[in-house]
Amino acid sequence: MTPRHLVPAAAGVGLFRLPAHADTARDISRDVLAADDGWAAYGTGTTAGAGADDAHVYTVTDRTGLVRALDGGSDTPEIIRIAGTIDADTDDSGRRLDCADYATDGYRLKDHLAAYDPRTRGSARPSGPQEEARQASAARQAERVRFTVGSHTTIVGLGRAVLKGASLQVRNADDVIVRNLGLRDAYAMLIGNSDTATGDRGRLRGTLHHDQFESVVQADLVKSWNGGAPHASGTLWGFPRTKSGGSCPVDLPALHNACDSGSERDLTADVGRTPVLHGGIDSAAPADRAVARGAGAGRIR
């Protein structure tokens, strides 16, 4: 999958892909997370919509169908199967929307660009009527493309399904699975808030593996993981080989601590516990091959 803007901010969120040799005859929408498969397996684990009755199993092909299936973030166990490409940035008839459709009174893109041209205005942050109008227009678009995902929900792509221009919001929800789905044309995948958001502690329990991230605009995939301890299979990583044939190993914890001296705490090689919620941990090269071979919508076999 290629997530760009997925916002899980809750416990028990599983984003995963089963091995490529999985049986194609089974219904992948009712798969559950394995008992030892990362933080989303903690406690009661992650089963999402596996127990949904037939009345709460949906196949959707457009934005309207997706909104209806999500039901405003209902906590009723459900399975949502996405077929084809769904563009969130469309009206109820399926017409693609643009800046003009979201423009509030007084906002025009060309006027905004002219008003805040750094060649005439300098580097000061935009402020004033045009910027306020732009923010109002952006809020209108966000309302259109933002979808609330409730607890006990499985969202699964059929074949090479794509959800385009959407923001999946998993907030104050538990037990969610998103898989076999391409997510495109948004901003980033964010887990949590800032490092000072202590309300996240104990809530951000998620599992991600065999996913591929491309052209992520924002730097952080994980904004905050308060109360969690990362597990690493080693502390030395290698940069690409140099022209002379050698490699340049780097101590990641030391590099992090040197570059982020204002963080809440430094990283150390000892996380203070022995991680148990995981299977085998691949080193970088095998992981790269596995992702290239099997990641992405429609790749489950």
Rank of each mutant, 00 (worst) to 15 (best):
Q169M: 14
A138P: 05
Y102E: 01
L190Y: 15
Y187G: 13
F147T: 02
Q141V: 06
I191G: 01
T90G: 04
T198M: 09
Q169R: 15
D195L: 10
S194E: 08
R96G: 05
D91P: 05
L168Y: 04
A173M: 03
S194H: 12
T153F: 11
G128W: 14
A114P: 01
H112L: 04
G182Q: 10
L190V: 12
R95E: 07
R134D: 05
A103K: 02
V145D: 01
Q169I: 10
Q135K: 10
L113M: 08
I177N: 07
A186W: 06
A197N: 15
G128K: 09
N180E: 10
R140T: 08
A103M: 00
I177A: 08
D117T: 06
A188G: 08
R95M: 06
Q135L: 09
D101L: 04
E132V: 09
V149K: 08
L158G: 03
V149T: 12
D174E: 13
Y187I: 10
L158Q: 09
A197G: 07
N172R: 13
Y102T: 02
R201Y: 14
M189N: 10
G202V: 05
D92M: 00
G199E: 11
R146G: 14
G157Q: 00
L183T: 11
L113S: 08
D174K: 10
R125I: 03
L204H: 01
D195N: 13
I191V: 15
T120G: 05
G159A: 04
A88H: 00
G159Y: 03
